[in-house]
Write a protein that binds this DNA or RNA. Sequence first.
DNA 1: TTCACGATACCACTTTAGAGGTATCAGCCA
DNA 2: TGGCTGATACCTCTAAAGTGGTATCGTGAA
Lengths: 212, 212
Amino acid sequence: MIRALLVDDHQLFGEGVRSMFKPNDGIEIVKITTNGNNVPSILSEIEVDMILMDISMPLIDGVGVLELMKSKGLDVPVLMLTMHQDMKYIRRTLETGAQGYILKDASKAELTEAIEKVSRRENYFHPKINNQIFDYLRGNKNPSEGNLVDQLSDREKEIIGCIGKGMNSKAIAEVLFISEHTVKTHRRNIMHKLGVKNTAELISFSMEKGII
Amino acid sequence: MIRALLVDDHQLFGEGVRSMFKPNDGIEIVKITTNGNNVPSILSEIEVDMILMDISMPLIDGVGVLELMKSKGLDVPVLMLTMHQDMKYIRRTLETGAQGYILKDASKAELTEAIEKVSRRENYFHPKINNQIFDYLRGNKNPSEGNLVDQLSDREKEIIGCIGKGMNSKAIAEVLFISEHTVKTHRRNIMHKLGVKNTAELISFSMEKGII
DNA sequence: TTCACGATACCACTTTAGAGGTATCAGCCA
DNA sequence: TGGCTGATACCTCTAAAGTGGTATCGTGAA
């Protein structure tokens, strides 16, 4: 019996997956948490063979939880679970050391296979994203290109959020209690880091990446 | 026993929800489809008491399915199921006649209550969005404000797409073989129609609405 | 057949964004 | 300690966006 911890902010999804596995499937979701920050304390209390983790979550995202685990020396194989069939997410995941990647539109059979493999510390990639993985491994050996988002500071993400709401530099300066010059400097740095030409591209990029 | 049809492109979620309901819950997911276009033919084959429908789906979105059902005179109560705690989605849903709205981070108990109510043709709104609903009903009795997106012409949507790619007015003019002046006029009209202040807000609004 | 509307185009003007710099200061890590 | 980085701030200048108009032309609906 493979004991799994499920980390997902969507209660329905979590409970659904839990009740999907019957005893003879060889898999049991022993615990569900909707807050990734709880993962370390849960791992200290109960023993699990692998973690099924959603990538996009409000308090701390899946990649954040992976990093948190790493920093605490917790070494449990992780299968990332997400809706985003998006190379940008997959890159971030691979770079932080997830064991596998599966889409939420996978079937039960695929999920079962993925959980089994990951619990044995084998890699699993959902067929739909395999090609993207190969492309990734072939091209771009340059890690600096991969996780553009991680290069952003919290302040910069905050600024992006304001821009997305339609605020101009002056308005942002007022709510953040900083100078308009500073806001403009931040905007410039952000655009340079993300490699975008203008505000429009910045916003569409940021929304795709999930920064907003 | 309430017989429900589930429309969701995420197989795992669907199978999860299906196996979550035991016979004594009084609810049975009798059919799952990942393609909303199949709903009319399914309804002609099997009888269901209500439909559980995801809003954001690739081929045809939840609102599209509702409209499709309406056009075919199919009258089955629909509970919309989504991750978006976003008034913009809720408006579209209500305007096309959904019976209820529940978030994917709801609990099983909440989902059960929602399904029961909707199957009896009562309205259900997830507690988290109740306040938003009330605000909506209080203000804005003006239906023309609701579906801003529909007011956009195809040309205007095309322009929005270009802006989202980071193109400026000049570049857009070149690829569309029109004058830069014309592009600027379109931008102005678009922003006026959508009620946004600047490009940043235009893009974030458009991406939320799914125009891009 | 008017009439409304979308697509097109132009002018003049103000505001904002964007790009080129430079610089200080606090915190963190080797 | 010394270097790196993020947050802050300022200056200058150009390019672009945004705002105020007006106007023609075709198409499809009333």
